[in-house]
Design a protein around this nucleic acid. Structure first.
Lengths: 355, 355
DNA sequence: TATTAACACTATAACGTTTTCGTGGATAAA
DNA sequence: TTTATCCACGAAAACGTTATAGTGTTAATA
């Protein structure tokens, strides 16, 4: 055998093995698949060779032939974001276990990037999508790229940011219940003037958590007061806008000294509120109790540590991957579709302790 | 035309267009590529049809034909980790701009997962790797999977966790300098007993940052004292081990009341140290000044906010992607290899303020 | 001895592209 | 009229697989 064989081989293929061993490509393929059509001798010879030179079938060729890629496309609005990374790690875990690969696309909260990213992946690169729609998409309420994908026979599992008019599998957090539990907790701790820091209305999860806040108040016989609800503008989330967010929150706290509880729809709002309140001399949790949403490191390391509604992102991701893979393996892309609701859990820390 | 055409088409291909328009596949392909071989009439007809039914070439088929996938494989030790996500977002940005897709593999700090992930992707799915080796890989010092990949003609760009014996492009943070600057800062603020919280020795970045710590002390004429260096065990980073980490740090602080400055090689150690110190009644920054490494949200939102050595993960990712894509487009997989060093920047916050 | 069956392989088509090389017919030049 | 030149298109190969359908040789059966 050519001594330079190893060097010359950029990538070993069936054809090269066949040429080297002086048999046909079919024989090589069948040998490696342990087909009964091939004699033991030949099989062993081929397999030894393949093993020696570390043959691995070309994934692309297989994808083309089988018309499936064993790859999941995941589109998320942001990756530098604790919640989404936990979801991705859940997806990746299940995907890997079942022999799937994960491709990640970032929309960066942009409608256009979401669309182009999907189009790029939809052309044969992946078998199905797991995605959370971007903020802009929710704002525009334009979901044609999603419906078209589904119509073309590619399954989608939506997560977290629900879009009720879309017919597909979904796995969502029980935002309403999570928020309700949080606010109920505040009430049970004696809070009577509970402020809500939430997003603009078009953000679905913000809306749902607001609804939960309201439910809890209703149940407790506390009247809902518009002026205790602060809708923070989207742009405050942008890089470098921390000060404006802080100013807005501080202004509110200054104007509402009677507030004794805060429920915020995310960690950032909650922590900013805590910092602003502390700067104003309010003691947490004695004067003011705070609960946030999304359980990340930020909450754990805050001073005082922040009680939060944990969303179980990993579980969410695992569920999403399972649902998608199930459809793919069963080759069932038709209704009925399923919506899995992942329960939240209130993690109590110092910001709501009673001492 | 068959009215059910749209429905029947799972995915539009050249062949289907050809059949429908009663021309050859070649003609369709050439028309879409605006070849001069084809008449205007035919071109227009084909293009109108393709546009109407939203034809997009099958990526997999193109990959097979061109023997390149326009996809980058990114292997990171962890995804629920601020630094790595910033790197990924930098990679993704550049990749997207240049028409590349990104596949993510997680090693979860495991050697075996790193190897299998790479093997899976190396078989045609991607054109090159960007990766940061897992902790276990560093521990074992087994890099055969990397050298083999390189030998097979697939370029690798290593980032952050450098492996000096590997011959490939690299983009690393200047850990030594970052650490030195941080410690110099502490010295300039009057600290004389500066503790170091670092990792076990086999973690490269820990070692480098430790070296920087030492350099700064040497320069400042402060003697290096072994007993001020705390090597925290890897396992303390695992989920649920926060208390043990905290206990270890607290013990040290209790035994070393004279410590007036802390440099920690990551955010977690720094924040845990701050919390422990505060619990022991030390005031930060007046009694004790603290600087961490890696600039994440944790540092910004801590109380007091934490000064850190910012690693510019995004830039790091951008550089890595640029280097890899350059090699791919130039088809140049040979030495010389480049090592880009991304400078760090000391971000000063409350934990080192002077008032 | 002629037929059949078993064996151990090879050839071929297909997946969806792109590209090189033909090719038939029309037109222009000789 | 014959020959050369275009024009507009089609055929075929290739990328690396797998699966189906041959095929030639030997051995068993009638």
């Amino acid at each position: 055998m050519n001594p330079d064989f190893r060097r010359s081989m950029q990538k070993l293929t069936l054809k090269k093995i066949a040429r080297e061993l002086d048999v046909s490509i079919s024989t090589v393929s069948k040998s490696l698949k342990d087909s009964p059509e091939i004699s033991q001798d030949t099989k062993e010879k081929v397999r030894a060779f393949a093993k020696l030179y570390n043959y691995r079938p070309n994934t692309i060729a297989l994808s083309l032939k089988n018309r499936k890629t064993k790859t999941l496309g995941v589109i998320i609005p942001e990756i530098v974001h604790h919640f989404f990374t936990t979801v991705v790690s859940g997806i990746e875990k299940v995907a890997n276990e079942k022999g799937y690969t994960v491709i990640i696309g970032l929309s960066n909260e942009s409608f256009e990037k979401e669309v182009t990213n999907m189009q790029k992946l939809a052309n044969g690169s992946i078998d199905g999508f797991i995605l959370s729609v971007s903020r802009e998409t929710q704002l525009k309420e334009d979901y044609h790229h999603l419906t078209e994908t589904i119509d073309h026979g590619m399954p989608i599992v939506l997560f977290d940011r629900n879009v009720s008019q879309l017919e597909c599998d979904k796995v969502v957090v029980d935002d309403v219940e999570g928020a309700r539990n949080a606010v109920e907790k505040l009430v049970s701790l004696g809070c009577e003037h509970i402020a809500l820091f939430t997003t603009e209305d078009h953000v679905n999860v913000g809306k749902l958590r607001t609804a939960g806040y309201r439910e809890a108040l209703d149940e407790s016989g506390i009247s809902y007061r518009e002026n205790l609800v602060v809708k923070l503008r989207d742009e405050f989330n942008d890089e470098g806008q921390e000060e404006r967010l802080r100013a807005e929150i501080e202004l509110f706290l200054r104007n509402n000294p009677g507030v004794d509880g805060i429920f915020a729809v995310n960690e950032k709002y909650a922590l900013t509120a805590m910092k602003a309140a502390q700067a104003l001399g309010r003691k947490i949790p004695s004067d003011l109790k705070v609960i946030g949403f999304t359980d990340g490191d930020l909450s754990k390391f805050a001073s005082p540590s922040l009680s939060t509604v944990s969303q179980h992102g990993i579980q969410l991701g695992e569920n999403a991957a399972q649902m998608l893979i199930k459809r793919l393996e069963e080759n069932n892309f038709d209704p009925p579709f399923q919506t899995v609701v992942v329960a939240t859990r209130l993690v109590e820390r110092e910001s709501t302790s009673i001492n």
